[in-house]
Design a protein around this nucleic acid. Structure first.
Lengths: 360, 360
DNA sequence: CCGCAAAATGTAAACGGTTACATTCGGGGT
DNA sequence: ACCCCGAATGTAACCGTTTACATTTTGCGG
C-alpha cells in the first residue's frame, strides 16, 4: 500500500494556482460552500457568501475549468471546424460565431486547414471532451465519411452542406442568382454568359440553377452560354477569352463568384472592352475587393457574420435539447448595385430611336 | 455517511461515452496498462499492447481531454486573444498560428473583439486551466492594466506590443518605412508627405520614425509634411485635401497604412490628379486590395502568417521551459513595387533636359 | 426549554484520466 | 529449491470541481 508518502492534499506547492480548497480553508468553510457561493444557485447565508467572495477575490481565485468541465461534463466551449481559416469569408464566419458565443458565455475552439476527411475526423475526435457542440463546414467530399466515422454524438450544425441528420445553415444561392439575373434582364440583357463554379461545390450548383431558371423563363436556355470555372481569378480570366469569341457576343457576364468576376474584369480590360458600356459584369459574394475594382462590381451580398450568428443560435438550441435534429435555415442575400452593369448598347440605340420617332 | 447509494463506478449510463475503464475491462487488463499502451512511453508486453489497441479501436475509444488535462495539468491548447477577429490581418495571424500549432499537436482557443482592458482580462482569466500558453495582441491602452491584473503566470507572447516581462513578436515597421522612403528618394522625390497613424499605436509610431529618419538624412526634416491619420480610409481621404493645398506641392505621399493610401487614392482621383504621373503614392501592409486599386499600390509587404508561425515557435519554447523571458523577434518586410510611384515630373524634365544637352 | 422543520453547511463520491509505488511473474545464478 | 532481479502489470491516490446526501444550525411554536 502506498501510505508512506505524506498526503499532499491542501499543501500548496510553489507556483501552483490557488484552488477552491485554499479559498475554503482561508474562509473557514467547506469547499462545497465555496462552490455554492461561486455558482450562486443554492441557498447560502448572506454573510457567509460575502466573506467567501471576499477571500476569493483577495486570493485571485479563478476556478480551474478542466476540473469543472470534467465534473459537470460541459465545457462551455464550442468547436469550429473549417476547411480553411483563410480569407475574408472564414474570418467573418468566425467573428459572427465568436460574438454570439461570447455573449452566451461560450468559448470557441477553432481548427482550420483540413484538406481530407481523415484529417477532419482526427480533429473532430480530438475535440471530444473539449467542446459541447460543433459548427462544421466540410468540403463536400468529406461529408459522407464523416457521418459514419463520427465517434461522438455531439450536437452539430453544418455550414453550407446538407445532411439528413444535422441542422444546417445555408446561403440562399439560388435566390441570389435569380435576383441578379432578373436585374440584368430588367436592364434589357438577353444573352447573358455564366461562368460556373466547381462541379461538386454546393454553392456553385445552386447559383447555376438560379441562372438557368431565369434564362429558361426568358426563353434563352441554351448551354452554350455556360463556361467552366473553379472560383479562382484565373478561371474568370480564361473564361472571358472564350466568351469574347462567341459570335453574337453576350451583352453581360455573370460570374458565379466575385473572384472570377475580378479575373474577368482584367481580361476585359486587357481586351479593351469597356465595362459596363460594352459589356456588363456581375459577381456573387460581395467580397471587399468588389468595392475597389474599376468599375466597382455589381454583385450579390451575403451577410456572412449573420451566418455565424445563426449557426450559433441553432447550435445553442441543439445543445440545450441535447439532440441533433435535421433542420435547415437559409440566409438571404442582397443585390448590391454598383457600376459594372448597364443597359446594353444595342438597347440604348433602340430606345433612343424610338424616343426620337415619338418625339418628332 | 453516504454509503447507501450503490457505487456507480463502471456502470455505463445510456449514451455516455466509452472510458478507459471500459477498455480495460474488455481487454482484461488494468486502466494503468491501457493508459500506458495509449501513451506509448512505458514498457508493455507486445502482445498486451496489440490487444489493448484492438479493443480500443473496436470500442471507438477516444480519451476524454478534460480528464487528461486535469490529470497532467496540460491542455495541449493555446489561447489566442485579439482585439478583433475581423479582416485579412487577423485571419492570417490565426492561420499562421493554427498551422504551426496543429503540427505540434496543439489546439487553439480563439477570442476576439475586446474593446477594453476589463473585457480582455476576463477572457484571459476564463482561459485559465484551458490553455498552456497565450498569444496576445492587446490594444496599446489595455497593456498596462493587463500586466498587474493577470492572475496567472502562463507563458505568453505578445504581438505588436512591447513589454519587459514577456516575449514579443514585432514587425519591422521602422525598417519597412525606411525602405519605402529610400525607394521614393531613389526615384528622385524630395518633398514627401506622410499620413500618420493613431498617436498611441506602436506600429504607427515606428513607421513615423522611419519616415523621419530618412527625411532628416536627406535634409528635409520639417514637420509640415506630416499629416494626422487614424488608419482609416476616411483619414487618408481627408489628409489629401490638406496636402494638395500645400504650396510647393509634395511630389509623393507615403501613407502609414494601405487603407489610408486607398482613401488618399480616391481623393486624388476625385481631384483629377494622375497617380503616379502627377503624384506618387505609397502604403504599408500590402493588404489584398492594394493589388486591385487603380493603379496598383506600391507598398510594404509583411508576411503575416509568418508572424503567427514565429509567435507559436516562441511560445512553444516558453511553454517547454515554463518561464516567461523577455525576448523580441522582429519580422522583416518587403518592398512591393507596383504602379503607384514614379519619377516626379519635375525630375523627368530635368533628366530629359540633361540628356538632350548631352546628346546634342 | 423542547421539538422539529427548514435552512445552512459539511462530507465524500464521482467525473476520467495519469502515475508513484506495490505486486506479481519469469527466468538465471548458486 | 531458493534468492534476486528486472520486466510487466495492478492498485489507488491525485488533479480541482460539483453535488447527493448527511449533518448541524437556526428559528419558532408550544
Amino acid at each position: 500500500m502506498s501510505r508512506q508518502h505524506e498526503p499532499l492534499r491542501y499543501r500548496r506547492r510553489h507556483g501552483a494556482a490557488v484552488t477552491i480548497h485554499d479559498v475554503a480553508a482561508r474562509a473557514g468553510v467547506s469547499v462545497a460552500t465555496v462552490s455554492r457561493v461561486l455558482n450562486g444557485k443554492e441557498l447560502v447565508r448572506e454573510e457567509t457568501s460575502r466573506q467567501v467572495l471576499e477571500v476569493a477575490k483577495s486570493l485571485r481565485y479563478v476556478p480551474n475549468s478542466a476540473a469543472r468541465t470534467l465534473s459537470i461534463r460541459r465545457s462551455q466551449t464550442i468547436g469550429i471546424v473549417l476547411p480553411e481559416v483563410h480569407g475574408e469569408f472564414f474570418s467573418e464566419v468566425i467573428r459572427g460565431i465568436d460574438l454570439a458565443a461570447r455573449a452566451a458565455g461560450y468559448h470557441i475552439l477553432v481548427s482550420g486547414s483540413h484538406s481530407d476527411a481523415r484529417e477532419m475526423i482526427d480533429v473532430l475526435d480530438a475535440m471530444r471532451g473539449r467542446v459541447d457542440g460543433l459548427v462544421v463546414m466540410a468540403p463536400d467530399v468529406a461529408l459522407a465519411p464523416l457521418r459514419d466515422q463520427l465517434a461522438h454524438k455531439l450536437p452539430m450544425v453544418l455550414l453550407n452542406s446538407d445532411d439528413e441528420r444535422h441542422a444546417a445553415i445555408t446561403i440562399d444561392n439560388y435566390g441570389g442568382a435569380r435576383a441578379m439575373m432578373k436585374y440584368l434582364a430588367s436592364l434589357g440583357h438577353k444573352r447573358i454568359a455564366f461562368i460556373k463554379g466547381p462541379e461538386q461545390n454546393g454553392d456553385a450548383s445552386e447559383r447555376l440553377r438560379g441562372y438557368r431558371q431565369v434564362m429558361k423563363a426568358h426563353g434563352g436556355s441554351s448551354r452554350e452560354l455556360e463556361f467552366e470555372g473553379d472560383f479562382t481569378e484565373r478561371a474568370g480570366f480564361d473564361a472571358v477569352q472564350a466568351i469574347l469569341s462567341l459570335d453574337p457576343r453576350p451583352t453581360a457576364i455573370f460570374a458565379a463568384n466575385d473572384s472570377m468576376a475580378v479575373g474577368a474584369l482584367s481580361a476585359l480590360a486587357a481586351a479593351g472592352i469597356d465595362v459596363p458600356r460594352a459589356m456588363s459584369l456581375a459577381g456573387f459574394d460581395d467580397i471587399p475587393i468588389a468595392h475597389y475594382v474599376n468599375p466597382p462590381l455589381t454583385t450579390i451580398g451575403v451577410d456572412i457574420a449573420e451566418v455565424g450568428r445563426r449557426a450559433f443560435a441553432v447550435l445553442a438550441d441543439a445543445m440545450q435539447r441535447g439532440s441533433n435534429t435535421r433542420r435547415e435555415e437559409c440566409i438571404g442575400t442582397t443585390l448590391v448595385v454598383r457600376k459594372s452593369c448597364a443597359v446594353p448598347t444595342s438597347r440604348i440605340q433602340k430606345v433612343r430611336g424610338r424616343k426620337k420617332g415619338e418625339g418628332s
